[in-house]
Design a binder for these strands. Structure first.
Lengths: 206, 206
DNA sequence: ATAGCCATTGACCGAATCGGTTAATGGCTA
DNA sequence: TAGCCATTAACCGATTCGGTCAATGGCTAT
């Protein structure tokens, strides 16, 4: 696999994104190396030259995505931010910047989470266990967050759930993730946060 | 195809749901008749005995889902309801009752909307054109709806968008749709609607 | 100029799976 | 007991699968 790493990063990314897309939309079994090769514009043989087997490529992608996500969080997340909605904005900006580098990454990780093929099921489990036990979103949104700003009778956890589903719903409806789509998403998220903040916070915190 | 219709409805539904699930999650090309047969617990040959070809089965499913959806709307939708959130509740109850009959139906219809395989692309287009031109959700939510109840500065269209994404997000995160899941969804939707109504409507309308 | 190296590929492998067919089975009816 | 019909196992040729390999061709070092 050293052969792959010595490629220019551009070319690496083309291949990675093609693989993330194919595996993410079709699952492990139904995504074929031919599909990935075609999507990446290279020959099937080249992919085997780099990764040896389909399984090795798949598992490598999982580790890679985990690392990218972790690095992005370590770099951008700021414990000093205590406002609930600022935290959510931060989290969204992390996810979006990840998707600007690898548009199919989150949907791939999601598909991995539900993958059930015997050839990779066990390996996925051990990889996930060796990584940290999340929920990423909830951990980031609630650890050290000031939720006293909410009006009485509003459940911040419900607001968080709404937000999570909302982003997932948007992304599931936009199967082709261009930079334009992601900027749109950014704007919609901002609108949404403003709407929530304005109506869910006590007046003195506006 | 008369052979299929003369089956007891239970058996018809097992086969239909298996096919909706397979086509919905894998798309036309990657969903095989063997997959569907296995999921339905019958032999592959029997499916060909009923529907002749894979394509015929697929196109039949599209028409069937369209009809079920139309019937459900005609039966349950009530023009007299003018409250925005009551309309949304009505719409959600329609979608959920449809999914209680055929859990994979909406995700199947969504996948049909994005299907791009040459073998069925053209046929899908003509079927959709012969059906009505929606957006179902928007049409139902806004035609004859009283939006003056909203506080100033709140855009009902944004609220609608949020709601749509939210439901899609929930459903995309729950790949196995049991009756229990759907009841959960129902509760969450109610919580969400109450939250929105309480905070987005002017006080005199609460 | 040329020798050699290495990324890249088309052609190929046996095995599996594809959409679809067919002959045989077996339960039901008359 | 004759016949009908739903259902299936076994099979068809074609395609695609994961994976291999020999040949190509561009690059570098001499």
């Amino acid at each position: 696999m050293e052969k792959f790493f010595s490629l220019p990063i551009e070319k690496q990314n083309i291949l990675i994104d093609a693989a993330l897309t194919c595996f993410g939309t079709n699952g492990y079994k139904k995504a074929s190396i031919s599909d990935i090769a075609t999507a990446a514009g290279v020959s099937k043989a080249l992919i085997f030259h780099y990764f040896g087997t389909k399984k090795a490529l798949y598992l490598y992608l999982i580790e890679l995505c985990g690392n990218i996500l972790r690095d992005e969080i370590n770099e951008k997340f700021d414990d000093g931010v205590t406002d609930f909605f600022d935290r959510i904005k931060l989290l969204s900006s992390i996810e979006i910047s990840v998707m600007k580098k690898h548009p199919a990454m989150l949907s791939f990780l999601n598909s991995v989470y539900f993958e059930n093929d015997d050839e990779v099921k066990a390996d996925i489990k051990t990889i996930i266990e060796n990584g940290q036990g999340e929920n990423l979103r909830n951990r980031i949104a609630f650890k050290g967050t000031d939720i006293s700003k909410f009006k009485d009778g509003i459940d911040p956890k419900l607001v968080m759930k709404i937000f999570t589903w909302l982003v997932d719903g948007y992304l599931s409806k936009v199967p082709i993730k261009t930079a334009i789509n992601l900027d749109d998403l950014c704007e919609e998220i901002d609108e949404c946060i403003n709407l929530f903040k304005k109506n869910f916070y006590r007046e003195k915190y506006l």
